[in-house]
Amino acid sequence: MEERVLEVSNLVKNYGSFRAVDGISFSVGRGKIVGFLGPNGAGKTTTIQILSGITLANGGSVSYFGKNFSTHRTECLQRINAASAFNTLMGKISVWENLFVFAELYQVENPRKMISDLLAQFEISDLRDTLYKDLSSGQKTRVNIAKSLLNDPELLLMDEPTASLDPDIADKTLSLIEQLRKDRNLSILYTSHNMNEITRICDEVIFLDHGKIVAQDTPLNLTKRISSATLRVSFDAHTLEFDTYLREKKLDATFPEPNTVAILSHEAGIPGILFDLSKTGIWITDIEVAKPTLEDVFLQIARKDTV
């Protein structure tokens, strides 16, 4: 049986009469990356805040490593850590000094060696004496993640760690997270608005909406819930000729460009369409199948369509 590092049971949070988190339950297994998605106001941030202990829940329970968080707070916090794009370190002290403060708080056995190793791993050893406020966004992100690894955590709560990073640095950060999971068997609860990131690194995705879990599965299985796909066909023939074929077959299609048609169909129907097309004598120059993405799933949920 998979070992659970985090278990959330029937979590409830009310802000006055507004229910921000509505009885959600989920778990994170050891070495797994779980994505936490949802539109703004879905309850993601509130849940992360409760999991961090900085916001109190009105009901339900949170357990880390089988221990109740509210009764074993210090013990649990010693074994987890967090990195967020929205939290920074002290600007007027150096990278080294910031990391040293947190190494002391986490009672790291050999703080100097741990900090040196992390700085080297993140290729920021040359920044050790730089004031934190003088770092670029990408450098700050790397220092924040280095801070979150000081205690060699078993679970990391990451709240949009790549927000405000340029694509190159964001890609490097994701590679780093993938490497960390591989090297340390680290479990991660990861929130992001970037669907490509979630698809790339997460083993499982939890969709929240109005404080409730509305979908929970692997990224692949979630996208399979949308059965339609778009078949994009480029052809060397008169558009009218193709239009006649489409009318005859009663297909839902548009012409985004001259000599290109986008046909919306169930995935299962695509081979049949291609077979029928091959018999029309129309010269096909290119075929592309656009399968549904996690973003499509997200949009369906956000727009209240059924997934």
Partner: peptide, 16 residues
């Protein structure tokens, strides 16, 4: 100062 630099949360999610 910890709030202004958005560092207070970091301190309170440490075992402090």
């Amino acid at each position: 100062w910890n709030i202004w630099t958005r560092n207070l949360t970091n301190l309170f999610i440490a075992p402090l």
